[in-house]
Design a binder for these strands. Structure first.
Lengths: 198, 198
DNA sequence: ACCTGAACACCGTTCAAGT
DNA sequence: ACCTGAACACCGTTCAAGT
């Protein structure tokens, strides 16, 4: 890249990232309805017109925030499955727990990530991790001999549904404590695996 | 009910329902970002303050719209499973297809339904239908002997995840035609059933 | 009882103007 | 090059006033 990256710019290094961080703070503090471009600009200490030098419009800021969320989700799942001494079945369970816990921990970001029209599933890092686990299971003979994409979709679909229901508050986990949610996720994941293994 | 229902009121019968219908039209025509209370009032032909006689605030209108969506979803699923000569497995597949097709057909309503914090799953009519199918399968011995709530959650979770991914455009069904989406739903549903039957 | 119009404090976006 | 301030067309909500 010939145009390099000029560090400095103006304020906290560069305003682009400062705005993204400010947007994250505003989102958790004021909720999605309070996430106005003007509020983000205020939180970053600039005028309400300044963000337009860094994002074409509000939607562009939201997309960038959503993309950062996908990256963090991928990191969270990597952390519990990559280079772990688990078999594919256990990895699938741990990935499911991490997925749902991420969603519950960052409900606003999660809603944002899956609200707009996004890139196809193949470009989501977390999906690639899941697919790798499935391939491992199929290759070593413990999973059914079906196209890995098909088994991966079954598993992803279930994880994603559970996460979205949890975020929407439809799950009625008693007293929304974290233990019972984890138990629920593990129970569903075990059932999904039952349908995936030979 | 002593207070009966007074038909007439003002305009199209009663403004409350007229506003709900107008909101539905605005939502599909202008998208979620165009769904302002003032736009709804304009579409219904009243002043921007009139809706406040019928809904406490904008959130109340949105909740009513969401509730109407849940009712229509329940109706759509009923239509394909109630009083049909299918076994529980086939009913599960047909219900899944109806669920996802409803979501894809009304993406904005679907987003709305599962965006806010709602009633717990037990109060969603469509979930009761699913649970009845599961109970039927367990009782007649074709489904595994597990708590029906657990199996129902596995199935619901998968249907819901598929629906949400489809709505978000993450599914990359070739040319978003309806046939390939239905095939995808059936493939996932068959895999889920594989994990539910004995 | 039900609706209107003006008013207030917000928005997103644009654009001339400043340094 | 980057940011500001005013301006415009919108919002949600409230409230006195009309019929």
């Amino acid at each position: 890249m010939p145009s390099g990256q000029v560090v400095g710019g103006y304020h906290h290094g560069d305003l682009g990232n400062a705005l993204l961080e400010a947007a994250g703070r505003v989102l958790v503090e004021k909720g999605p309805s309070g996430l106005s471009l003007r509020a983000v600009a205020r939180a970053a200490g600039v005028s309400h017109a300044a963000p337009y030098r860094h994002f074409r419009d509000k939607a562009a800021l939201l997309r960038a925030l959503s993309q950062a969320g996908f990256e963090r989700l991928g990191t969270a799942i990597s952390a519990v499955v990559v280079a772990k001494p688990y078999g594919p079945e256990q990895k699938l369970i741990e990935a499911s727990v991490a997925y749902v816990e991420f969603s519950v921990q960052y409900p606003e970001i999660t809603q944002l990530m899956f609200a707009g029209t996004l890139e196809p599933l193949e470009q989501v890092a977390a999906y690639e991790l899941l697919l790798a686990i499935i391939r491992e299971g199929v290759e070593q003979g413990s999973f059914r001999e079906r196209p890995p994409q098909e088994l991966a979709l079954v598993a992803w679909t279930s994880m994603h549904g559970l996460a979205m229901l949890a975020v929407a508050g439809l799950l009625a986990v008693d007293g929304d404590d974290e233990r019972s949610l984890q138990e629920l996720v593990r129970a569903v994941a075990r059932n999904v695996i039952y349908g995936i293994v030979k």
